[in-house]
Simulated assay, not measured.
Amino acid sequence: MKKNYRKIIIVALLLINCIGLSKVCSAEITNNLTSNNIESKDRLEKIKEKGVLTILTSDLAPFAFIDTKTNQPTGIDIDIMNVIAKELGVSKVEMKVAPFPDLLEKLNTDDNIDVAASGIIITEKRKELVAFTDPLYKESEAIIVPKVSRINFKEDLKNAVVGAQSGSVYMDLAEKWKKEGKVKDVVIFESIPELLSAISVKKIDAGITDSIIGEYLLVKENLYLKILQPYSQEAPAIIGIGVRKSDVNLLNAMNKKIDDMKKDKTINKILEKYGLSDKYLY
């Protein structure tokens, strides 16, 4: 009798454990299914629904900046995005601003941002963070020096203190040159205006920046600076617009319009508007 009683207790305990485990397993499966079934609305659908395409930039001319006369976003990348927005059926382009080194991280973490566009050079490292559109245009580095300077050739940089913008590919190039003994030292600045100001007041001997920025700002701002010539460029680059890797439909729609803009020479006209020649066409 005792043996049978023990058997009954053991069987009962086993049944209780099985029921408990069954509930746990069942809960896990239900949670997984719920999680998988929650689908966020497609980015392209969101943009069309709100009627606004929000672009994150570093507020840097001539790529993307606020026109002081109209108080409206303008610039090469903004003009390109305006054309793309119309193709998407969107009537308004909105610009938000963040420091250049933070653009791609903020794009991935702020759901209110749709794309990042601020003369962003496509690199393998950046492609780990976001997807890029097809190339829009190309550029390279430029060496900026005071109009009256002891630096007349690239070789003269060996004894020079050189500046570059934080987070830019030209910061990486400047630091590479320092390791190779091609420049004396490197100073990093948070923005291009700070960099150009430091060159103007001779806090540093020269600066490395985008050739497009060099050509545009030196003419528009009438700065007492110049681009070092002759100079053999080392870092040719291509510019694209950053998109979240998950926003595939948006990326495809943008690339389709970018291809059209290259064929009908819309991008040529936009570059020309900002005083840039066909040498920047990709």
Rank of each mutant, 00 (worst) to 15 (best):
I238A: 11
E105K: 09
G242N: 05
S197M: 11
N159W: 10
L173I: 03
S91Q: 15
D77E: 13
L136K: 07
I47Q: 01
I267L: 10
A98M: 00
V93R: 02
T123C: 02
K69Y: 12
A27E: 07
P236A: 14
A64G: 07
S232C: 00
A198W: 07
P99N: 14
K203L: 08
T266C: 10
Q233L: 01
D247Y: 10
G119K: 06
F100G: 04
E215S: 14
S277A: 10
I143M: 12
K127H: 06
E87R: 15
S40M: 12
L228Q: 06
E105S: 10
P236T: 09
I47H: 03
M95W: 03
L281D: 05
V201N: 13
A253I: 02
T109D: 11
G240H: 00
I78E: 11
F132N: 04
V201H: 15
E180Q: 11
K178M: 10
I113M: 00
P62N: 05
N268R: 04
K202N: 13
K23I: 05
Y216K: 06
V169A: 06
N252P: 02
G75P: 01
A237W: 03
S35W: 12
C18H: 08
D210P: 01
I16P: 06
E190H: 04
D172T: 05
A237F: 05
S197T: 15
A174S: 10
I84E: 05
A160L: 10
I122F: 02
A27D: 03
N222Y: 02
Y216R: 03
E180A: 08
P101E: 00
I16C: 14
L60W: 04
D278K: 14
